[in-house]
Amino acid sequence: MDELELLVDLHRSGQRQGPGGSKETRRALEMTGLAQARGLRVADIGCGTGSASLLLAEWLDAEIVAVDLFPEFLAELNDRARTRGFSERIRTLEASMDALPFAADEFDLIWSEGAIYNMGFEAGHQAWRRFLKPGGMLVVSEITWLTAERPPALQAHWEREYPEIDTASAKVAQLERHGYRPEAYFVLPPDGWLTNYYEPLEASFEAFLERNAHSESARNIVEAERREIALYRRYRDFYSYGFYIASRID
């Protein structure tokens, strides 16, 4: 397997492929004002194995298009949707988030937890805006600085990994410049990183290494994940995911 295939193998059995939590998904949904609406059209972009898609199917009267680049993740989501009785509510679509085959003004709600960074926050919300109906809602979670200053080692790490990391005020200003009205914002708490994501991921490392014969590439991936986890445990007061809820304006 190449590195990308190994990463998919590591993450495909996880309930989620990044930090988050059902309480936070519910909180963000309530902030959209759409929880009681009927007949919604929803896109979950970068859905992974569908943690958010399944919750939205449970809580909304909606047709959901769950989009991901990796068919292995979508196969897991389809299995989980069948088990929970949501096959008629969730349609999976294998596509790149920067080449989506959607029509203008198609969706009431675009959702993306922990995935917009693959395009970049600004490029992502600019590209997706046209798929929203006027007044439609955007919900994304995005890596965000929690303080005006941070330790140099942490700053250097994120400048390498994701140069678009910034404060919430800067992210909100981007939304305002590109045709959105910010409606709400909140920070993902530590249990969304540790209890819901990093600790289950750590528990999967040994089985992952065994499946892949403890190859050098597999060991390198595990070590990289361990460094990321250690970084968060040390510096979690300085960064997290922020949930950004905004509406399209014209």
Score class of each variant (00 low, 15 high):
residue 185 Y to M: 03
residue 71 P to K: 10
residue 157 H to V: 09
residue 165 I to Y: 06
residue 13 S to T: 14
residue 174 Q to H: 10
residue 53 S to N: 04
residue 197 Y to C: 04
residue 18 G to F: 00
residue 136 G to K: 09
residue 167 T to Q: 11
residue 171 K to L: 08
residue 231 L to W: 14
residue 71 P to Y: 02
residue 77 L to Q: 06
residue 170 A to Y: 02
residue 115 A to N: 04
residue 3 E to M: 07
residue 209 L to I: 12
residue 10 L to N: 07
residue 99 A to C: 05
residue 25 T to N: 01
residue 213 A to P: 03
residue 175 L to M: 11
residue 198 Y to D: 09
residue 28 A to D: 06
residue 183 E to T: 13
residue 125 H to T: 08
residue 40 L to P: 10
residue 216 E to M: 08
residue 209 L to T: 09
residue 139 V to A: 04
residue 61 D to I: 02
residue 171 K to Y: 13
residue 160 R to G: 13
residue 98 D to L: 09
residue 175 L to Y: 13
residue 226 R to V: 10
residue 29 L to E: 05
residue 127 A to D: 06
residue 81 A to Y: 08
residue 157 H to F: 12
residue 73 F to Q: 04
residue 81 A to H: 11
residue 47 C to D: 02
residue 180 Y to E: 06
residue 105 D to A: 13
residue 37 A to W: 02
residue 126 Q to W: 02
residue 232 Y to N: 06
residue 234 R to W: 07
residue 69 L to A: 13
residue 54 L to I: 01
residue 162 Y to N: 11
residue 106 E to Q: 15
residue 249 I to L: 07
residue 192 G to H: 02
residue 52 A to Q: 14
residue 165 I to V: 12
residue 9 D to Q: 07
residue 154 L to G: 05
residue 70 F to E: 15
residue 174 Q to V: 15
residue 153 A to D: 11
residue 87 S to W: 07
residue 53 S to Q: 02
residue 151 P to V: 09
residue 59 W to Y: 02
residue 240 S to D: 11
residue 5 E to I: 00
residue 19 P to R: 01
residue 56 L to I: 03
residue 217 S to T: 06
residue 228 E to F: 15
residue 233 R to T: 11
residue 90 I to N: 03
residue 33 G to Q: 15
residue 88 E to T: 13
residue 19 P to S: 10
residue 169 S to K: 06
residue 17 Q to L: 02
residue 240 S to L: 03
residue 164 E to C: 01
residue 139 V to C: 01
residue 78 N to A: 14
residue 8 V to S: 07
residue 125 H to W: 03
residue 241 Y to R: 04
residue 195 T to G: 02
residue 115 A to S: 12
residue 34 L to Y: 08
residue 234 R to H: 12
residue 148 A to K: 11
residue 19 P to D: 04
residue 96 S to P: 03
residue 53 S to K: 01
residue 224 A to S: 14
residue 170 A to H: 10
residue 75 A to T: 14
residue 213 A to C: 07
residue 137 M to G: 01
residue 250 D to Q: 09
residue 223 E to L: 14
residue 71 P to S: 12
residue 224 A to G: 15
residue 61 D to P: 06
residue 22 S to L: 15
residue 77 L to C: 01
residue 37 A to S: 15
residue 138 L to S: 05
residue 174 Q to K: 15
residue 67 V to N: 11
residue 154 L to N: 11
residue 138 L to N: 01
residue 213 A to S: 15
residue 75 A to E: 14
residue 3 E to L: 00
residue 78 N to R: 08
residue 199 E to T: 13
residue 83 T to H: 08
residue 120 G to Y: 09
residue 90 I to L: 06
residue 244 Y to A: 04
residue 36 Q to R: 15
residue 14 G to I: 01
residue 84 R to W: 08
residue 183 E to R: 15
residue 172 V to R: 03
residue 104 A to G: 12
